[in-house]
Design a protein around this nucleic acid. Sequence first.
DNA 1: TATTGTTATACTCTATAACTATA
DNA 2: TATAGTTATAGAGTATAACAATA
Lengths: 150, 150
Amino acid sequence: MKTEGRRSETGVVTLLTWLSKALNRRTSEELLGMRLKAYLALGYVREHPGTTQHELESAMLMDANGVVIILNELEALGYSIRRRDPNDRRRHIVELTESGKRALEGADKARESIEDDVLATLTPDERETFRSLIQRVLDGLMQAVPEPRL
Amino acid sequence: MKTEGRRSETGVVTLLTWLSKALNRRTSEELLGMRLKAYLALGYVREHPGTTQHELESAMLMDANGVVIILNELEALGYSIRRRDPNDRRRHIVELTESGKRALEGADKARESIEDDVLATLTPDERETFRSLIQRVLDGLMQAVPEPRL
DNA sequence: TATTGTTATACTCTATAACTATA
DNA sequence: TATAGTTATAGAGTATAACAATA
């Protein structure tokens, strides 16, 4: 990627695109024990108990179809279950199984190890700064326009 | 995406994956005047004159096939040309056309405008910090293992 | 024989629309 | 009629391997 020799101002969009691609290459399915998407979805469900599929759609920036595919996959693995919302029987509430919680914790460890590797050039302080900056950018984006073009 | 209500330590891998996805949604083809991939490739060629396709492969984290597809696209638009390397006639050297340079400059402006929008929540100082942190992480990654798993 | 680039092919992902059930 | 979820299908994107030209 040879970014060191770059003239001066490679855009943040460009840099982030590359970084994300490099991250995806390292975050392999073997390490996580599941696909990255499944890990992200499972993590979201853990932080937001009682989530519906509709909420997952907007939260994960996926379409309804994609959510179904991921949940089918997670259920096949025994990591999550869908049950009907008694208050509105059109809705499905997504919940983690015990097995799913354990798998998620294992994947968390793998992710932390990947991050230690990826962020090796940063000091602990810089890592925290980096994390909080990304978080703030994300919060700003989500607050501004939840669904840019859909 | 609702990251504000999150427990505490959503991983950097997770945050970056979301951010990249949100960025892709905003960086539309109409705004850039070309696809994001084409823009990235064109930008790389500008910063690295005399690049071969093989170099583009590793630089852009693409396979040989993908490079061919992008270059076909760029040539069809009249933005770049391939010519044989006289020193090693197996190689193709990629160069920008005048039209390609102009298109790239236009895309740069669009990208800057997107970035202003995306990084709106950060102060100018924070933006520069953010940029340099990403840059350092990338440099570290590329230096450590140019091709993680290929 | 190894390397560079191309082509062909298959696989995955994403997006769209049609369908079912509930409201 | 509108919404939540599912299914089916088509298009784009990505990866694999076979191939041609050159070293």
